[in-house]
Structure formats: C-alpha cells, structure tokens
Amino acid sequence: MPDTTDTPAPEEPHAGSGHATGGARGEPVSLDAPQFAVAARHPRRAEGAAAVSFFLSFLSFAAFGAAYWQAAPNDVLGISLGVGFAAFGVALVTWGKYLMPRGPFEEPRPQMATTPQERAEFVGDFASRGKVAIERRGALAKLMGAAGAVLGIVALFPLVRSLGPKPNGSMYHTKWRKGSRLTSIDGRAVALDDIEVGGIITVFPENDVGGALSQTVLIRVQQTGDVVTGPGKETWGPHGYLAFSKVCTHAGCPVGLYQELTHQLLCPCHQSLFDVDTGATPVFGPAPRPLPQLPLYVDSKGYLRAQAGFDEPIGPGFWYRGGSNGSPQ
C-alpha cells in the first residue's frame, strides 16, 4: 500500500539526551552507574512479594503432588498446578522487573547488508574455486543431476502406488442397485407401514448397512399416492415415501435435520436447506445441487426397494464429475 501521505515518526538519533555517567557511547561504564540501580522504588517490598509468591508456588506444587497421589479430581489437580506455575512465574517476573538493573542498556546493531568487499571475497572464494572444480568435470555434474532427478521422481511413487487406490469409477456409484432393500441401521428391512406420515429414518442398502456413501434418508410425506418431485420421477415416490441421498451436495455432511412442518431438509454443517417436495432442491445456503433422489417401489411382500441406484454421483462435487447432472452410473 503506497503511503504517500504518511508522516513517519521522527527518528532523530539520540534526541537531545545527555550522557549519563560513563561518558560517550562505547566508553567503559562503572557498575555504580544509575543504570545499574534496581528498578524498584521499594526493592524490599518487591523482594517480599517475590518471596511470598515463591512460597505460594512451593505450597501449590506440593499440593499438586498430594492431589495427584490421591487421584484428586481435575479441578483440584489443575488449580494446584496452575497456581503453582503462575505464582512461580509472578515471582520470577517480579524479580526480573523490579530487582534487576533498571537500564537502559544498548548494544550496537550491525547492518545486515554486507559490504561490497565482503561479498566480493565470498563470491571470489566460492566461484573461483568452484569453477575449477565443476567446469572441468561437467559430465560428472550432469550425471549427478540425473541420478538426483530420478531419485526425486521415484520418491513420489509411494504417493501414487501405495498410499491409496485410484478413484477409478468409485465416485460415480454407490452400493444401491436395482432391487436393493431399504434397511435400517440395525439391519431390518423397511416395510410399507413402518413409517408414519411426518416420519424420517436413515436407511442403507442391505449389503452396505452403515455405509458412508450409501446412507439415505427415507421420509414419508403423505399416507397414500405417489409423490412426484419432477418430470421423469412419477413413480419414484410410492405411498408418500421419498428417499434422498443423506450426503450433502455441498461439503458432504449427513443431512439429518428434517423440518416436518415445511418439508425441508437442513444440513447441520453449513445450513443448506433442501425442499423435499420438489426433489430436495436447494432453497437456501451454499449447496448448489439437489440431493439425488433414490427411486423406490414396494415389492409384493410390502417391503420398500430401490428401482435403481442414484442416477448421478452423490455428495459434493469433484473435477471429473462432468456437467450439472454428472456422469451416469
């Protein structure tokens, strides 16, 4: 930022100050100089305070030892230890602040920039000696560089070969398949009458109970009839049931808050709000895409099943996700 209008503070050297005993700067200073007087006006008081403080820390540390021996609760342990440390610190600081030379003292500060001569000497040593050594052995230097480069590249191999599998296609599908039964966390299949209107349950495909990516919320919004959340989804919501991926399309948190009055799902992490009736479309907050909907049907025994897996990648976006609808499974 250009500070064209600045008026820097005056940096007047030694602004008008006279010199104390000891004469000009750099002259020897006697220990009797006023700068060596203790800082406190009442050193005995300071000494007393430090003594009391040290004694307090002595007692507190001893109390901490006793408390620890007796397995005392956290607050007793912590307060005895904390008071011990704090009192010890207060005593030391009191000692240093009030009972030591008041100063001020100074020391010279060399400028960091070197003189041209110093630099020339260094560069001379480095370059001239090095030049002889390196230039006559050009091939050696190149070989050394080549070996080092190979090592550098090879050193990256664990990153791509053993740290973890490559994503391959795993971003694009979950364990939901055609016919997967909707299963509760304790492994029971959900039947038609198991959830009341206004109810919500977290479900998984029966072969991936507890799965981080296949977690799905099942909501019942009405007693009878298909719920249609959009074109092409006429049969996805039988008997008032709707199922959506529970993984937020924003940052991947489980969207577990169902506002029953407003038929909205709220993400607890960043408060993205999804409207259930229109297919979990985002209506508020940072989530950019609807929660993918799982198409459902009721089988002949009355159990809820998936017509197919999700028709787009679930969860937050990633570079290879493709267009707004993502790649098909």
């Binding site: 010890f88 610190g89 602040k97």
Partner: peptide, 25 residues
C-alpha cells in the same frame, strides 16, 4: 542476563499457569 532471563522465564511459567488454570476450570 539477568533481566530477561527472569522476565521471560517467569512468563513461561505464567503462560503454563494460565493454561493449567483453564484446564482446571
């Protein structure tokens, strides 16, 4: 030495003390 050895040393114990008191309370 000796002023800031005492001051800074004391400050270390004070910081530790504040941390311990927070941990207690």
């Amino acid at each position: 030495w000796p002023t800031y050895a005492a001051k800074a040393g004391g400050f270390f114990f004070l910081t530790t003390g504040v941390t311990a008191l927070l941990g207690a309370a």
